[in-house]
Each structure stands twice: as C-alpha cells, then as structure tokens.
Computed example of a mutant assay.
Amino acid sequence: MTQANINQDARSMPDLLLVASKLSKRFGGLQALSDVSFSICKGDIYGLIGPNGAGKTTLFNVLTSLYVPESGTCNFMGHQLTRLKPHEIAIVGIARTFQNIRLFGSLSAIENVMIGRHIRTRAGVWGAITRNKSTRSEEAAVEQRAHELLEYVGIAHRANDVASSLPYGDQRRLEIARALATDPTLLALDEPAAGMNASETVVLRRLIEKIRNDGVTVLLIEHDMKLVMGLCNRVLVLEYGKVLAEGRPAEVQRNPKVIEAYLGAGSAEVAVGVSA
C-alpha cells in the first residue's frame, strides 16, 4: 500500500480511524517491521495474522508506543501515535491486552478493573489526602463502573476473588474488562484466545462481537484461524515484518502467497482450521 493509496483511503472513507504508513522497526540486525502500511475503519474487527516471528506483536508495540519506530507514521483520530508515550496512547483512546496475561494477581478482579478506570478520573494527590466529597463520589463511580464491566464480560460473580485464583478464561476476560475501563475507541487484543478451549473461544467470540456492536473498534492478533476468518471483516497478513496480503478474509484465504507462507510451497489451499 503506497502513501497515495493511504491518502486516497483517507478521502474516500470518512469513518477512517487509524492510518499507518511505512512503519519500520529494527532490533540490531533484525528488521522486525519493514514499510508496513494499513488502515482501520470505525466499526472494524480488523485481524492481524502471520506465521510466528512475522512481526505482529512488534507492530502492536509500535502502535501503543512501547517501541519507537525508525521510520513511518501512524495517525489515530488526528494524533500521531509515534510521538506519544504509552500512557498518552490510552488517553487518546487506544487500549490493549497482552499475549501473556498481565493482571495484578494479588488484587481482586474488581480492583484490577478499577485501576484501569483511574486514567479517566480527576482526583489528584490533594483529593487522595483530604478524601473530600468530590473524591469520594468519583471513587464510588469508579467502583460502580468496574462492577458494570465485570458484568459486561460475564464474570461479575468473581468480583471479589483474587485475580490469580480465576480460571484461565476468566483471567482473559478480566484483562479485557480492565482495558475497556479506559473507555477506548480502539481495543487491541493480542492473542486473546491463546490457551482457551473450544467453549471458552466461543464465549470470547461473542464478547468481541458485542464490544464491536457497542461502538468499540477491535484490532485482533490471533493464531486461531477459524476465529479470525469467522470474526474479522478485514485481515492483514505479515511475513518477516512485511505486508504479505490485506483484504477480506475470503480473499486472504485464497491468496497464493498466504497459502505458501502457512502451508509451504505447493499447497493448494488454506484450511479454515489451520493454526498459525
């Protein structure tokens, strides 16, 4: 995708939410990303797939300012993400989860979600010290919102349980609830189905669809090809840090380059159930 294509997309799609152009990232002698360009529209469930080592998580980390790219730009609702710090990324409206669950294991489920919510609060150090009426009211609202989000993801009955004691699937949903507590416009999920059984994955799919239907755009890294192809409306395929293909799931599945990347030269088709 050229810069001209990106600019044309921006003019032709009024609901364009994020535009990445020629993002590149190197670690020593390893070129992790090379001129990666793509765009996401409001209301998308946008899939990011590729073989192991393709650069998917590196791209996520660039988008959320954990890594600074050597070159390229990423515009999100008028904000140049490559100029922001990680906490500023959350403020402008992007929240993410991680491939490896990063909960506060010794805190309760509701406390984990409340921590995520505090990015939208106004009480400062003085309010915390004086415990004035405004601060108390705000904290009550934070706790109420945390309860609502636990209900939303289906684990309200575990609100007071220590996060580390929750079943694996519930921990994944708790991490999503904490991300939603920041009121994101774009929710970036890094392999949310990893380690889940079939029934847990079905529940996850319904949750992601509900999140999108409620107005939050989703960017999804996932190895479960059945989930990606059945859930996403557009898919970006990376290989060795470069864009291999981009388009609707059916188009991507039929792309000879994608077939070769996943199944090797000479393979005729990508099976829906193939795992990256």
Rank of each mutant, 00 (worst) to 15 (best):
L236W: 03
I176K: 01
K56Y: 01
L30V: 15
I176F: 07
I6P: 00
L63P: 01
T73M: 05
L59D: 12
L84V: 03
G273A: 07
L66H: 09
V272W: 08
M229G: 06
C74I: 01
R206H: 14
H157V: 00
A90G: 04
A181P: 11
L263D: 01
S275A: 11
T73W: 00
T121Y: 07
L166Q: 01
Q171C: 00
V62N: 02
L30T: 15
V270Q: 10
G93A: 01
A4C: 00
R234K: 14
T201N: 12
L84W: 09
A141M: 13
A163H: 07
V68C: 02
V202D: 12
C41G: 03
I115S: 00
S199H: 10
Y67T: 03
E143R: 14
A177M: 04
R173K: 15
G195A: 10
D15H: 14
L244H: 07
L149K: 09
K242M: 10
E148Q: 15
V153I: 12
R248I: 08
L107D: 01
A181K: 11
I89T: 13
A194I: 04
H157F: 00
A193G: 07
Y67V: 03
I129C: 05
L149T: 08
K210W: 06
A271H: 14
V272D: 12
T182H: 10
D9Q: 05
I91D: 10
S71I: 02
S71F: 02
A163D: 08
M1R: 02
K210R: 15
L231T: 13
K56C: 02
L23Y: 04
E209C: 03
G215W: 14
M13K: 14
N160E: 03
M114C: 14
P14Y: 12
S134H: 09
R96P: 09
I208Q: 10
K226M: 02
M13N: 14
V162Y: 08
S37T: 01
V125G: 02
P192M: 13
P192N: 13
P249C: 08
R173Y: 08
E246I: 09
T217A: 11
V203N: 11
K25T: 07
E191H: 03
S275R: 15
R145Q: 06
S199E: 13
V228C: 11
E111Y: 04
D190Y: 04
G50V: 11
N52D: 09
Y240W: 05
F60D: 02
S134N: 08
V252S: 05
E200V: 08
N197Y: 13
I110N: 13
